[in-house]
Amino acid sequence: MSIIQVKNLQKSFGHIEVLKDINVEIQEKEVLCVIGPSGSGKSTFLRCLNRLEDISGGHVIVNGHDITDSKININKVRQEVGMVFQQFNLFPHKTVLQNITLGPIKIRSIDKSNAESRAMELLAKVGLKEKAHSYPGELSGGQKQRVAIARALAMDPKIMLFDEPTSALDPEMVGDVLDVMKQLAKEGMTMVVVTHEMGFAREVGDRVIFMDGGYIVEENKPEELFGNPQHERTKAFLSKIL
């Protein structure tokens, strides 16, 4: 049984139809990578999976809940779906520890000391235990992104969404973040990753989808899609970036 089902997903901004007809199923523990040219709707697709964008048409079923149903408690569903942004979006007025414990304390009503010890475990996991009491402004980009991952994990999500998590990083920071993501994948996290890191997609991805013009043009195992692309547009895109 797939943990995410996307059926005939459509998304328009005003008159501009950004997602035209997206159909995809994501299995539990699968790592799905999403690639495609700028403006093809990758971020929009990802943001529809936790309804950060209002969905214009079709159905998105996450962990059994149809989130296009306006009666659903979307906050409940979002607790199960962690998201990591290109620009980190840490809360600058809170320490690293407070960033991570905010959700557990305010939403899950976990008491502070339990939330903090769990946060310290997560910080250890992303290699930033010593930064617990720093503010985001005092961290490098790579450190911020690892804190952002820890913050998302603190809610014990079933699914993690990543929107170009390494695109805003200096090259020497990229590896640290990718390592954390690889570790997550190994532990069996279901992940949807919009990325330009073809190395990561090849190594960690179970499946890659290539998006262009609001459609999924091609979807396949990474070695197939990169090694033997079927569509002209995929070939053209890959020849540009590889």
Partner: peptide, 20 residues
Amino acid sequence: GQTEAARSIGLTSVQTMRFI
């Protein structure tokens, strides 16, 4: 991005306003 990060954790709009 602040609102989006807060909402993606599962905070309600009121909590997001108040805490973030």
